[in-house]
Design a protein around this nucleic acid. Structure first.
Lengths: 139, 139
DNA sequence: AAGATATATGAAAGCCTATTCATACGTGAA
DNA sequence: TTCACGTATGAATAGGCTTTCATATATCTT
């Protein structure tokens, strides 16, 4: 998952985010439309957060982990490994990422740690995603 | 955007996707739950497609392009460059990717090429994504 | 036809990430 | 305490992706 820290980005006086290094090299055709849309542009922070969220979902392993959790209430690490045929180390690494993004939560029960989806947004995102790939079947 | 071609993946006789190289190295605690969930696992193709979709959304540049298009009907390449302060080459490359994933469509008008969202799934995905990052404000 | 504008594309560089191995940590049992 | 089990984490490598530059293609104008 890319970091996209935006350390080089700055914000204009008008609040418009300017991303470091990127410079427009063409002139707009419909300057009015551009001017109207510009204030609604995604800000630097929202962009980074959204990108981080979707990046979490863009990985087959994490995607399958989330999908599995979306089909039950909670599962321990070793059961996730068995269900998805993954190495324990790999699962732990990915679950850590998902936890940092508040996509999953965990609770300890003895030496087992159970993971569950943190809220319903993920379920909906997965569902919408499936809706799209089902329609765009020709790709 | 990662390819995730799964050339090394195979499918068991029971239809369960097995991903190349990955081997579970622990034993399941709740084998019944695993057995119940396994038939519902995401297949290889669905996983790859979903991952590709979310990967498209995981990139700040593409995310901003899609967000911009979601706030208007259509826009030409140079206006997108101007609005987002991006190089033309960069925008063209990313729009190509988005088009291949059927996230945007385009039409030519003289020497301009106008891009628009291909369907409403993307709009909803963006909206859901915003919903999540708004709630998980503490990350 | 020639020039100008708008867009597309190929190649290369630099950076980032996923996975694995090895190992540490935490918990329960004997 | 010592062992066994489940989980977490650090380091390293291999492979991919994004961005840029240079250039090609397409269309319109003169």
């Amino acid at each position: 998952m890319k970091a996209y820290s935006y350390v080089n980005s700055r914000v204009h006086a008008d609040g418009v985010a300017v991303f470091g290094g990127d410079v427009c090299d063409v002139s707009a055709v419909d300057e009015d439309r551009v001017a109207v849309l510009r204030p609604g542009n995604l800000g630097v922070h929202d962009t980074a957060r959204l990108a981080g969220l979707f990046a979490a979902l863009s990985e087959p392993t994490r995607l399958r982990l989330l999908d599995a959790l979306s089909r039950t209430d909670e599962m321990c690490v070793c059961d996730l490994c068995a269900l998805l045929n993954l190495r324990q180390s790999n699962v732990s690494h990915q679950l850590r990422l998902l936890r940092e993004l508040r996509l999953v939560k965990n609770r300890r029960a003895g030496r087992l740690v159970f993971y569950a989806l943190d809220d319903d947004h993920v379920r909906r995102l997965l569902s919408d995603g499936r809706g799209h790939v089902r329609e765009a079947a020709g790709s």
